[in-house]
Amino acid sequence: MKKQMKILDAQDKELMTVRKIEREGNALIIRGKIFGAMPMVAKLTPAEARAAFSLLDMKTILFLLSFLFRR
């Protein structure tokens, strides 16, 4: 079985299947399919990653630290 990650909407329906995350220069490239059909390649730059962190409050940061250890 291939490794993959699913991103779900609020009704637990699949929005995106991520098949690969890789580095390209200073960016992260995310490859997958949207709605199980449309291939997609997304790029996350360092500036956009910093912008994402600015959206987080302390409570969410603490949650993220424990996120991988939850069921």
Rank of each mutant, 00 (worst) to 15 (best):
I7D: 04
A37C: 12
L62N: 14
E48V: 08
I61L: 13
A27H: 04
L8A: 10
T17W: 02
E48Q: 13
T60M: 12
A10T: 14
L15R: 06
S66T: 12
F67D: 13
R23T: 07
L8H: 09
R31E: 03
R50H: 13
M16N: 02
P46D: 05
I29S: 00
K43T: 09
A52Q: 11
A10M: 12
A42E: 03
A52F: 14
K20F: 03
F67Y: 15
L55H: 13
R23I: 04
L55I: 06
L15V: 12
R19I: 02
K3L: 09
G25N: 07
I29L: 03
E24S: 08
M16H: 02
K43E: 09
L65Y: 11
M58Q: 15
R70C: 07
A49R: 05
F69D: 15
L65S: 11
D57Q: 09
L55Q: 14
I7G: 04
A42I: 01
M58A: 13
S54E: 15
A42S: 06
L65I: 09
M38F: 11
L28M: 04
K20G: 01
E24R: 05
I7N: 05
L62Y: 10
T45V: 06
E14D: 13
M5T: 11
A52G: 12
G36W: 05
A10I: 11
A49H: 05
F35D: 15
F63H: 13
L8Q: 10
E14W: 05
T17D: 01
R50V: 09
F69A: 15
D12V: 07
R31V: 02
F69G: 15
R23W: 07
A27N: 09
E24L: 06
F69T: 13
N26Y: 08
K33G: 01
A52H: 09
R31S: 01
Q4W: 06
I61P: 00
V18T: 03
A51R: 14
I61E: 06
F63L: 11
M40F: 06
R23H: 08
P39V: 01
A51H: 11
L28D: 00
R50Y: 11
L68Y: 08
A49C: 10
G32C: 01
P46W: 01
G25T: 05
L8K: 10
L55G: 08
S54F: 08
L68S: 12
R31A: 00
A47H: 08
I34K: 02
L62V: 14
F69W: 13
L28W: 01
S66N: 15
A51W: 08
M5G: 08
L44W: 04
L56D: 07
